[in-house]
Amino acid sequence: MGMWLRRNTTIFHTLGVLQWVCLCIVAALTAADKLNPEGYPQWIRHALGLVKFVPSWLTLALIGMTAASKYGRTVIGDPKIWRVIQNLLDEYRDLVFERCDDRRLHHYRITLFEYRRIRICCRWKKGRMPWDGWLCAVARSGHTTKKVGVFLAPLNKPDEAEGVVGQIFVGDELGINLTSLPSITKDSSPEEISDYARRAFVSPAWVQSRLEFGLSIPRTLCGYPILRGGERWGVIVFDSVDEGCISIRSQKWMVSKTMMTSVLSNLLKGI
Protein backbone atom coordinates (compact mmCIF):
# COMPACT_ATOMS: atom_id res chain seq x y z
CA MET A 1 0.00 0.00 0.00
CA GLY A 2 1.70 3.17 -1.17
CA MET A 3 1.91 6.37 0.81
CA TRP A 4 -0.07 8.13 -1.96
CA LEU A 5 -3.11 5.96 -1.21
CA ARG A 6 -3.03 6.92 2.47
CA ARG A 7 -3.50 10.56 1.57
CA ASN A 8 -6.01 9.96 -1.21
CA THR A 9 -9.20 11.54 0.09
CA THR A 10 -11.07 10.89 -3.19
CA ILE A 11 -10.65 7.10 -3.06
CA PHE A 12 -11.53 7.00 0.66
CA HIS A 13 -14.73 9.04 0.19
CA THR A 14 -15.71 7.27 -3.04
CA LEU A 15 -15.55 3.95 -1.19
CA GLY A 16 -17.71 5.48 1.55
CA VAL A 17 -20.36 6.59 -0.95
CA LEU A 18 -20.23 3.21 -2.73
CA GLN A 19 -20.68 1.42 0.59
CA TRP A 20 -23.82 3.39 1.48
CA VAL A 21 -25.34 3.27 -2.04
CA CYS A 22 -24.95 -0.52 -2.19
CA LEU A 23 -26.35 -0.88 1.33
CA CYS A 24 -29.39 1.29 0.52
CA ILE A 25 -30.13 -0.65 -2.70
CA VAL A 26 -29.91 -3.99 -0.85
CA ALA A 27 -32.20 -2.66 1.91
CA ALA A 28 -34.69 -1.32 -0.67
CA LEU A 29 -34.70 -4.59 -2.64
CA THR A 30 -35.23 -6.65 0.51
CA ALA A 31 -38.03 -4.39 1.75
CA ALA A 32 -39.74 -4.31 -1.67
CA ASP A 33 -39.65 -8.10 -1.89
CA LYS A 34 -41.59 -8.40 1.37
CA LEU A 35 -44.04 -5.56 0.70
CA ASN A 36 -47.65 -6.30 -0.25
CA PRO A 37 -48.38 -4.15 -3.37
CA GLU A 38 -52.15 -4.03 -2.69
CA GLY A 39 -53.41 -0.55 -1.91
CA TYR A 40 -50.42 1.31 -3.38
CA PRO A 41 -50.57 3.59 -6.45
CA GLN A 42 -50.10 2.05 -9.89
CA TRP A 43 -46.50 3.27 -10.34
CA ILE A 44 -45.39 1.79 -7.02
CA ARG A 45 -47.06 -1.55 -7.87
CA HIS A 46 -45.24 -1.47 -11.21
CA ALA A 47 -41.90 -0.77 -9.51
CA LEU A 48 -42.48 -3.55 -6.97
CA GLY A 49 -43.29 -5.89 -9.85
CA LEU A 50 -39.92 -5.10 -11.43
CA VAL A 51 -38.08 -6.00 -8.20
CA LYS A 52 -39.15 -9.63 -8.68
CA PHE A 53 -37.04 -9.72 -11.85
CA VAL A 54 -33.86 -8.63 -10.00
CA PRO A 55 -31.67 -11.75 -9.95
CA SER A 56 -30.50 -12.93 -6.53
CA TRP A 57 -26.85 -12.85 -7.65
CA LEU A 58 -27.14 -9.08 -8.07
CA THR A 59 -28.25 -8.72 -4.44
CA LEU A 60 -25.34 -10.91 -3.35
CA ALA A 61 -22.93 -8.87 -5.50
CA LEU A 62 -24.19 -5.65 -3.88
CA ILE A 63 -23.67 -7.14 -0.40
CA GLY A 64 -20.16 -8.16 -1.49
CA MET A 65 -19.45 -4.64 -2.76
CA THR A 66 -20.65 -3.13 0.53
CA ALA A 67 -18.29 -5.39 2.48
CA ALA A 68 -15.39 -4.75 0.06
CA SER A 69 -15.87 -0.96 0.26
CA LYS A 70 -15.91 -1.08 4.04
CA TYR A 71 -12.76 -3.24 4.08
CA GLY A 72 -11.06 -0.89 1.60
CA ARG A 73 -11.77 2.11 3.84
CA THR A 74 -10.40 0.23 6.85
CA VAL A 75 -7.20 -0.69 5.00
CA ILE A 76 -6.59 2.82 3.65
CA GLY A 77 -7.45 4.58 6.92
CA ASP A 78 -8.94 8.03 7.30
CA PRO A 79 -6.81 10.48 5.20
CA LYS A 80 -7.44 13.19 7.82
CA ILE A 81 -5.64 11.06 10.42
CA TRP A 82 -2.82 10.32 7.99
CA ARG A 83 -2.37 14.06 7.40
CA VAL A 84 -2.06 14.62 11.16
CA ILE A 85 0.50 11.79 11.35
CA GLN A 86 2.46 13.44 8.52
CA ASN A 87 2.49 16.75 10.44
CA LEU A 88 3.54 14.94 13.60
CA LEU A 89 6.55 13.36 11.86
CA ASP A 90 7.51 16.74 10.34
CA GLU A 91 7.34 18.51 13.68
CA TYR A 92 9.24 15.89 15.64
CA ARG A 93 12.04 15.58 13.08
CA ASP A 94 13.49 18.89 14.30
CA LEU A 95 13.29 17.80 17.91
CA VAL A 96 14.70 14.30 17.54
CA PHE A 97 17.77 15.03 15.43
CA GLU A 98 20.58 16.77 17.28
CA ARG A 99 21.91 18.59 14.25
CA CYS A 100 19.35 19.22 11.57
CA ASP A 101 20.47 21.27 8.58
CA ASP A 102 17.39 23.08 7.24
CA ARG A 103 18.74 23.02 3.69
CA ARG A 104 18.95 19.22 3.62
CA LEU A 105 15.84 18.11 5.46
CA HIS A 106 15.60 14.97 3.33
CA HIS A 107 18.80 13.80 5.02
CA TYR A 108 16.99 13.64 8.37
CA ARG A 109 13.92 11.50 8.08
CA ILE A 110 11.34 9.78 10.23
CA THR A 111 9.55 6.91 8.51
CA LEU A 112 6.60 4.93 9.80
CA PHE A 113 6.41 1.33 8.61
CA GLU A 114 3.29 -0.82 8.93
CA TYR A 115 3.48 -4.60 9.11
CA ARG A 116 1.48 -6.46 6.48
CA ARG A 117 1.16 -10.20 6.66
CA ILE A 118 0.46 -10.45 2.94
CA ARG A 119 1.79 -8.16 0.24
CA ILE A 120 1.08 -9.03 -3.39
CA CYS A 121 3.66 -6.62 -4.85
CA CYS A 122 6.61 -7.95 -2.85
CA ARG A 123 10.11 -8.30 -4.25
CA TRP A 124 10.08 -11.76 -5.75
CA LYS A 125 13.01 -13.97 -4.95
CA LYS A 126 13.53 -17.70 -4.65
CA GLY A 127 12.02 -18.96 -1.41
CA ARG A 128 10.25 -15.67 -0.69
CA MET A 129 6.47 -15.53 -0.65
CA PRO A 130 3.91 -12.69 -0.55
CA TRP A 131 2.57 -14.07 2.75
CA ASP A 132 5.98 -14.05 4.49
CA GLY A 133 5.25 -10.72 6.27
CA TRP A 134 6.42 -7.30 5.10
CA LEU A 135 7.08 -3.87 6.53
CA CYS A 136 5.75 -1.18 4.20
CA ALA A 137 6.34 2.57 4.63
CA VAL A 138 3.04 4.38 5.23
CA ALA A 139 4.27 7.86 6.21
CA ARG A 140 7.54 9.77 6.05
CA SER A 141 8.54 13.23 7.23
CA GLY A 142 9.10 15.91 4.60
CA HIS A 143 7.78 16.11 1.07
CA THR A 144 10.65 14.39 -0.75
CA THR A 145 12.01 10.82 -1.00
CA LYS A 146 8.55 9.33 -0.57
CA LYS A 147 9.33 6.21 -2.59
CA VAL A 148 10.41 3.74 0.05
CA GLY A 149 11.20 0.07 -0.38
CA VAL A 150 9.62 -2.74 1.62
CA PHE A 151 11.48 -4.91 4.09
CA LEU A 152 10.94 -8.56 4.80
CA ALA A 153 9.94 -9.39 8.39
CA PRO A 154 8.96 -13.07 8.50
CA LEU A 155 7.68 -13.99 11.95
CA ASN A 156 8.22 -17.70 11.29
CA LYS A 157 11.82 -17.06 10.10
CA PRO A 158 12.95 -14.05 12.17
CA ASP A 159 16.63 -14.55 11.26
CA GLU A 160 15.76 -13.56 7.71
CA ALA A 161 14.29 -10.18 8.71
CA GLU A 162 15.74 -7.41 6.56
CA GLY A 163 17.22 -4.13 7.67
CA VAL A 164 17.17 -2.47 11.07
CA VAL A 165 13.41 -2.09 10.63
CA GLY A 166 12.99 -5.87 10.28
CA GLN A 167 15.23 -6.60 13.26
CA ILE A 168 13.23 -4.20 15.42
CA PHE A 169 9.92 -5.73 14.40
CA VAL A 170 10.88 -9.34 15.05
CA GLY A 171 12.71 -8.32 18.25
CA ASP A 172 9.43 -6.93 19.59
CA GLU A 173 10.19 -4.88 22.71
CA LEU A 174 13.58 -3.26 22.06
CA GLY A 175 14.64 -0.31 19.98
CA ILE A 176 17.91 -0.34 18.01
CA ASN A 177 20.34 2.52 17.51
CA LEU A 178 23.15 2.39 14.94
CA THR A 179 24.96 5.70 14.98
CA SER A 180 28.18 5.25 13.08
CA LEU A 181 27.63 3.13 10.02
CA PRO A 182 30.47 3.41 7.48
CA SER A 183 30.29 6.05 4.78
CA ILE A 184 29.50 4.43 1.44
CA THR A 185 29.96 6.10 -1.92
CA LYS A 186 30.15 4.90 -5.52
CA ASP A 187 33.91 4.57 -5.03
CA SER A 188 33.57 2.19 -2.06
CA SER A 189 35.12 -1.24 -2.49
CA PRO A 190 32.98 -4.43 -2.47
CA GLU A 191 34.45 -5.22 0.98
CA GLU A 192 33.31 -1.87 2.36
CA ILE A 193 29.85 -2.39 0.87
CA SER A 194 29.68 -5.90 2.37
CA ASP A 195 30.74 -4.55 5.77
CA TYR A 196 28.03 -1.87 5.64
CA ALA A 197 25.42 -4.42 4.53
CA ARG A 198 26.34 -6.76 7.39
CA ARG A 199 26.14 -3.98 9.98
CA ALA A 200 22.84 -2.62 8.63
CA PHE A 201 21.23 -6.09 8.21
CA VAL A 202 20.72 -5.67 4.46
CA SER A 203 22.20 -7.42 1.44
CA PRO A 204 25.16 -5.97 -0.51
CA ALA A 205 22.86 -5.96 -3.57
CA TRP A 206 20.47 -3.62 -1.70
CA VAL A 207 23.30 -1.16 -1.01
CA GLN A 208 24.54 -1.48 -4.60
CA SER A 209 21.09 -0.76 -6.02
CA ARG A 210 20.76 2.40 -3.90
CA LEU A 211 24.12 3.59 -5.17
CA GLU A 212 23.09 2.89 -8.75
CA PHE A 213 19.90 4.91 -8.34
CA GLY A 214 21.78 7.76 -6.64
CA LEU A 215 19.92 7.30 -3.35
CA SER A 216 21.45 8.23 0.00
CA ILE A 217 22.95 5.57 2.25
CA PRO A 218 22.14 6.28 5.93
CA ARG A 219 24.91 6.39 8.53
CA THR A 220 22.51 6.71 11.45
CA LEU A 221 19.59 4.32 11.85
CA CYS A 222 17.47 4.25 14.95
CA GLY A 223 13.99 2.96 15.63
CA TYR A 224 11.59 1.11 17.87
CA PRO A 225 8.38 -0.91 17.52
CA ILE A 226 4.94 0.69 17.40
CA LEU A 227 1.95 -0.98 19.04
CA ARG A 228 -1.76 -0.56 18.35
CA GLY A 229 -4.18 -1.90 20.93
CA GLY A 230 -1.26 -3.67 22.55
CA GLU A 231 -0.47 -5.55 19.33
CA ARG A 232 2.65 -5.12 17.21
CA TRP A 233 1.60 -2.74 14.44
CA GLY A 234 4.84 -1.59 12.85
CA VAL A 235 8.09 0.26 13.37
CA ILE A 236 9.20 3.88 13.42
CA VAL A 237 12.66 4.57 12.01
CA PHE A 238 14.85 7.69 12.25
CA ASP A 239 17.58 7.83 9.62
CA SER A 240 20.23 10.26 8.51
CA VAL A 241 23.24 10.38 6.21
CA ASP A 242 25.13 12.06 9.05
CA GLU A 243 26.64 9.91 11.75
CA GLY A 244 25.77 10.24 15.42
CA CYS A 245 22.96 12.77 14.98
CA ILE A 246 20.67 11.06 17.48
CA SER A 247 21.63 10.94 21.13
CA ILE A 248 19.41 8.34 22.80
CA ARG A 249 20.75 9.22 26.25
CA SER A 250 19.64 12.84 26.06
CA GLN A 251 16.63 14.12 27.95
CA LYS A 252 15.46 15.78 24.71
CA TRP A 253 15.28 12.40 22.94
CA MET A 254 13.47 10.80 25.88
CA VAL A 255 10.83 13.50 26.06
CA SER A 256 10.36 13.75 22.28
CA LYS A 257 10.14 9.97 21.88
CA THR A 258 7.58 9.57 24.66
CA MET A 259 5.41 12.45 23.48
CA MET A 260 5.51 11.47 19.82
CA THR A 261 4.76 7.81 20.52
CA SER A 262 1.89 8.72 22.79
CA VAL A 263 0.25 10.97 20.17
CA LEU A 264 0.96 8.49 17.38
CA SER A 265 -0.57 5.60 19.32
CA ASN A 266 -3.74 7.58 19.93
CA LEU A 267 -3.97 8.53 16.25
CA LEU A 268 -3.46 4.95 15.11
CA LYS A 269 -6.44 3.87 17.22
CA GLY A 270 -8.63 5.86 14.81
CA ILE A 271 -7.35 4.10 11.69
Partner: peptide, 25 residues
Protein backbone atom coordinates in the same frame (compact mmCIF):
# COMPACT_ATOMS: atom_id res chain seq x y z
CA UNK B 1 11.43 7.29 31.52
CA UNK B 2 15.11 8.28 31.44
CA UNK B 3 15.57 6.70 34.89
CA UNK B 4 14.52 3.30 33.58
CA UNK B 5 15.83 3.25 30.03
CA UNK B 6 19.56 2.61 30.16
CA UNK B 7 20.80 1.77 26.63
CA UNK B 8 23.08 -1.25 26.44
CA UNK B 9 25.04 -3.12 23.79
CA UNK B 10 23.72 -6.41 22.42
CA UNK B 11 24.85 -8.64 19.59
CA UNK B 12 22.25 -9.29 16.93
CA UNK B 13 23.22 -11.63 14.09
CA UNK B 14 26.89 -11.09 14.90
CA UNK B 15 26.62 -7.29 14.91
CA UNK B 16 27.07 -5.20 18.06
CA UNK B 17 24.19 -2.76 18.33
CA UNK B 18 23.00 -0.31 20.94
CA UNK B 19 19.55 -1.29 22.17
CA UNK B 20 17.05 0.56 24.34
CA UNK B 21 13.61 -0.16 25.71
CA UNK B 22 10.66 0.73 23.52
CA UNK B 23 8.61 3.58 25.08
CA UNK B 24 5.68 1.16 25.37
CA UNK B 25 7.56 -0.90 27.96
Amino acid sequence: PSEYDEPRTETIRGVDVEVFLSPYE
